[in-house]
């Protein structure tokens, strides 16, 4: 292990003389040895591909290999941003994620508060288990469930729900305009249970005495929620939301790929950066475009993490992630 450390550690260890540090490192050599397999794996799985971002600046052909292929500068990016795809996938990714963040937050906090107010503990437990269930299903399973509901010929919605109200069946998988409404519903159905668990744990942790005091002062339920529960939940809310905003440029691949059954007609409203990267590489074999889109995602994603973290630091240092 080279003691010349390329990454400035956020600690204060630098004051130790290099001789002392070496001696201490020897003392801990077993611990360093334990870390080696993981370090090797992370280098292969994460750091080696990072050098691969240079592919985005090349025109890859298989004869010359990655290193031998000619450089083309920003050509791949020019092509990418010349298409309408670039705008479409960016818009879709951010807009869907923004809606998901909002619905998950509002939905989960509402459910958590109501669960906490419920008189029967057992019933609350039962409801929580039911709401949490969809979170455990893979995107493939969800695609089956959604298909059972929305399938054109036999789906429950067309055959039972719409029929009961005398409405004509809808070809859901051929209607791009329906999915900006369907996907948030499916996302809420799948994920609200998870966030409910997180927020409920935080609500349970709030000291009962606050509420007792509020009651004596004549505060009703609504006042208690807005003046006690929500302010005390704020740190958790900020962290959970910050984590999601940092990843607003990364879409839930399963939701947009599996649940839509990868239907071409739906691409205008369901193509996101992740599905675009996947399809242009694995389906179309367009390495240049795919790498360019991938790097675009990684860089903007990185900027967003730092940006959102910076804003939180300005407001309240304790709530920041780093």
């Amino acid at each position: 292990m080279n003691p010349v450390n390329p990454v400035p550690a956020p600690g204060r260890r630098t004051k130790a003389s290099s001789g002392g540090a070496l001696r201490r490192m020897r003392r801990y050599r077993t611990l360093y040895l334990m870390m080696i397999p993981t370090i090797a794996l992370v280098i292969v799985n994460n750091y080696l591909p990072m050098f691969g971002i240079l592919i985005a600046f090349k025109k890859i052909n298989y004869e010359d290999g990655i290193l031998g292929s000619p450089w083309v500068g920003f050509e791949n990016f020019k092509y990418l941003f010349a298409t309408s795809d670039a705008w479409e996938i960016t818009r879709n990714t951010i807009a869907y994620n923004a809606v998901f963040i909002a619905t998950n937050l509002i939905g989960a906090i509402a459910v958590a508060i109501l669960l906490h107010e419920l008189r029967g503990r057992l019933a609350a437990k039962f409801y929580q288990s039911a709401f949490f269930l969809p979170y455990f299903l893979s995107a493939v399973v969800v695609s089956y469930l959604v298909f059972a509901m929305l399938g054109e010929e036999h789906g429950f919605v067309n055959n039972v729900l719409l029929k009961t109200f005398g409405l004509d069946p809808v070809s859901w998988y051929a209607k791009p305009n329906a999915w900006p409404f369907l996907l948030p519903i499916i996302n809420a159905w799948k994920n609200i249970g998870y966030f409910t668990v997180v927020y409920l744990a935080a609500i349970v942790g709030i000291d009962e005495e606050y509420y007792e005091a509020a009651l004596i002062d004549g505060a009703g339920k609504w006042k208690q929620i807005t003046r006690i529960t929500l302010p005390l939940l704020m740190p958790v809310i900020v962290i959970m939301t910050l984590l999601q905003i940092g990843r607003i440029f990364y879409a839930d691949f399963g939701l947009f790929f599996q649940v839509t059954l990868d239907t071409g007609t739906l691409y205008p409203t369901t193509n996101v950066i992740d599905t675009y990267v996947y399809r242009s590489f694995m389906v179309m074999g367009d390495i240049g475009m795919s790498s360019a889109a991938g790097l675009y995602q990684a860089l903007v994603g990185l900027a967003l993490v730092f940006g959102s973290n910076y804003i939180v630091r300005q407001i309240n240092r304790d709530n920041a992630l780093f």
Binding site: V44, P49, G52
Partner: peptide, 15 residues
């Protein structure tokens, strides 16, 4: 840092 930045699908696949 691997949570913050990644090389993307293509290089990862090639590795």
């Amino acid at each position: 840092f691997t949570m913050l930045f990644n090389g993307g699908l293509v290089p990862w696949y090639l590795v």
